[in-house]
């Protein structure tokens, strides 16, 4: 590589872009961030092509373009925010390009999640509150909380155990369906439909759905449709889990 500074810039920008896409950012934001990093590093005419499965970038007038594949996708809005903050610091010349890259590596290797117990309680509260908001069924509030909590636990455990996409949603939905129907049979709840509607809410693919719409509206048709398929697959996984149980029991 003839130009070390340019090389480091592309490496940092691609790294930032990959972290953002992996954690559920929309494509237009990634493109914008990468171009701003290039601009602030002194390369005003960079060329970027971003999709949700890979990023390509080159500097005009230089020979080498680089490719960064994006292999895994999950949801972690904290990381997107931190990359955004780092990019702001870099724009304000508070950190150098080298520091920027080091901090990105650190960020990538040390994810900061909420503790599991807090996630479980949150999943329970999402289920219970939304069950009441949607259906107005106060007596089933606690049962929905409990079943939603268990459903999220299954989802979380399966995603940690086997990294098979959509399987964790399917199994979690199945467990929710079984528990809801059993709860009504044993008179712990009054209406299985309401309990299921509430308990499934934490699994709803909110980020891919919203991003699919935003990408398509912003003109990133390839990524938008790919993301829409992702959301649709999650929804189908949840729906078929529930449908299977409803037919069986």
């Amino acid at each position: 590589m003839t130009n070390d500074q340019g090389h480091l810039m592309i490496k940092t920008a691609l790294h930032a872009g990959r972290i953002m896409i992996e954690n559920g950012s929309e494509v237009a934001r990634v493109e914008d961030t990468i171009q701003r990093i290039a601009l602030n590093a002194g390369y005003p005419d960079s060329k970027v092509y971003v999709t949700i499965t890979g990023i390509m970038m080159s500097i005009s007038g230089e020979e080498n373009a680089q490719i960064e594949p994006v292999k895994s996708r999950s949801i972690d809005l904290e990381k997107i925010t931190q990359v955004n903050d780092l990019s702001r610091h870099f724009a304000a010349h508070k950190i150098s390009l080298k520091q920027f890259d080091d901090r990105l590596t650190h960020l990538d290797q040390h994810p900061r999640y909420f503790p599991l117990w807090l996630q479980l309680i949150s999943a329970g509260l999402v289920s219970g509150t939304l069950e009441v908001v949607f259906r107005g069924n106060y007596p089933d509030f606690l049962v929905s909380c409990l079943i939603g909590l268990i459903g999220w636990g299954v989802f979380y455990g399966m995603s940690q155990l086997a990294r098979v996409r959509f399987l964790s949603e399917f199994l979690a939905a199945t467990v929710i369906g079984i528990l809801a129907i059993l709860a009504v049979r044993f008179h712990l709840g009054t209406n299985a439909d309401d309990i299921i509607i509430g308990s499934v809410m934490p699994l709803v693919p909110g980020v891919p759905l919203t991003n699919a719409v935003r990408d398509i509206l912003a003109g990133d048709l390839v990524s938008g449709i790919a993301r829409g398929m992702e959301a649709l697959m999650s929804a189908v996984a949840i729906g078929s889990g529930i449908a299977m149980i409803l037919q069986a029991m």
């Binding site: 949801i75 972690d76 809005l77 904290e78 990381k79 925010t81 931190q82 999640y113 909420f114 807090l118 996630q119 309680i121 949150s122 999943a123 509260l125 999402v126 509150t129 939304l130 009441v132 908001v133 999220w152 809410m201 934490p202 909110g206 980020v207």
Partner: peptide, 21 residues
Amino acid sequence: IMDLILTYIGTITFGVLLNVP
């Protein structure tokens, strides 16, 4: 009013699941 309180709680807790800062 009850629904609004529940929506507030539901929104925040869903944010926790998505790891919003």
